[in-house]
């Protein structure tokens, strides 16, 4: 049964006979998709299984059975990777469509088991001895390799998070939001370095066309890390010294602003504009509060109202520009 609206449009001559036929054909053979339900199921299954195994290992740490559990985890890991290796599509520097959602999540299960295996080995037997850098470096390399070899975006983001852990910081979205960690100089520079590094990686995967679709994840993490690090740096230092940070911010923001137009991405445009607004407002408010308190508060409100209205106009303008451009 075809929606009467299309028949109506057809009667008005707005839709050709062929298009109407196309639509009719589609509605006749309409399938009901349980794609997202199945995906959620797989996700839940993998999470429950690996969490359960993780708890089991740590609960049995002093008993004999822990070796059996460890063996089981190792077997699951090998089985998952063997299955994925058998079912994978051949490697290509382009995007490789995954064979099925099942494939993606079996690969995830294998990776998670590998991580708990390594983590447990280090905890119990200290296989990496006291070279703690190695204990995080090897899983990271493994994650990157898996992500590229099997073309898995989820594992790529895990790899990025592990890269950060290796550098001594944490970048999962929740931790970034909570981020109490910008209070010391070293963390600041680490975040900034990682952010810029990721932006460079994003640039290279785009321009050399090597796993181009990975560039979004790199770029996304890179933008947030770099901006947050610079803004925190700006507030960390004294007024005069902090102006250097503002200058760095300006350069990065300008570059990313241009880049978001090149990528035609509303998301990155929005992010850049909002972070810039935070930086500029930070500067304005910090400057205002040199004045007497009673006046500065009034002026601060006036600033927020005025700048807010300006930015609304700017955003609407940018929306038009990017849409048509």
């Amino acid at each position: 049964m075809v929606n009467p609206i299309f028949e109506d449009l057809h009667a008005q001559g707005l839709i050709s006979d062929k298009s109407l036929e196309n639509i009719q054909k589609k509605e006749l053979g309409a399938f009901f998709s349980i794609h997202w339900e199945l995906k959620t199921f797989l996700y839940l299954g993998v999470m429950m299984l690996s969490t359960g195994l993780g708890i089991l290992v740590y609960k049995n740490i002093d008993s004999i059975s822990h070796q059996a559990v460890l063996g089981a985890i190792g077997l699951i890991c090998i089985a998952c990777f063997a299955w994925c290796y058998k079912n994978k599509s051949p490697f290509s520097p382009e995007k490789v469509e995954s064979p099925s959602s099942l494939f993606d999540y079996i690969l995830l299960l294998g990776t998670l088991s590998f991580l708990s295996f390594i983590g447990y080995m280090q905890f119990q037997y200290e296989v990496f001895g006291t070279r703690y850098g190695m204990a995080t470096f090897i899983p990271m390399v493994f994650l990157f390799w898996t992500a590229y070899y099997f073309d898995h975006l989820g594992i790529l983001t895990m790899a990025i998070a592990n890269l950060a852990i290796w550098m001594g910081i944490s970048v999962t979205p929740k931790n970034l939001l909570r981020s109490g960690d910008f209070s010391n100089e070293r963390a600041l520079y680490t975040y900034l370095a990682l952010g810029l590094f990721l932006l460079i990686l994003a640039y290279f995967s785009r321009s050399y066309n090597f796993k181009k679709h990975f560039s979004f994840s790199y770029h996304n993490y890179g933008v947030h890390l770099a901006f947050i690090a610079i803004i925190s740096g700006y507030f960390y230092y004294d007024y005069l010294y902090s102006l250097i940070w503002l200058a760095i911010f300006g350069m990065l923001a300008w570059f990313l602003y241009q880049n978001s137009f090149k990528q035609r991405s509303f998301y990155f445009l929005m992010i850049t504009v909002l972070y810039s607004y935070v930086a500029i407002s930070g500067f304005a408010l910090r400057s205002l509060f040199f004045m007497d308190k009673s006046i500065s508060l009034l002026l601060a409100f006036l600033y927020l109202i005025g700048s807010g209205f300006c930015l609304v106009v700017i955003l609407m303008d940018l929306n038009k520009k990017l849409k048509s451009g």
Binding site: L108, L115, T136, M158, I160, N162
Partner: peptide
């Protein structure tokens, strides 16, 4: 995936 599996993904670092 990266958010919810970071507890497991971060296991090696926890041991550290």
């Amino acid at each position: 995936i990266s958010e919810t599996s970071s507890g497991i993904g971060g296991a090696p670092s926890n041991t550290g």
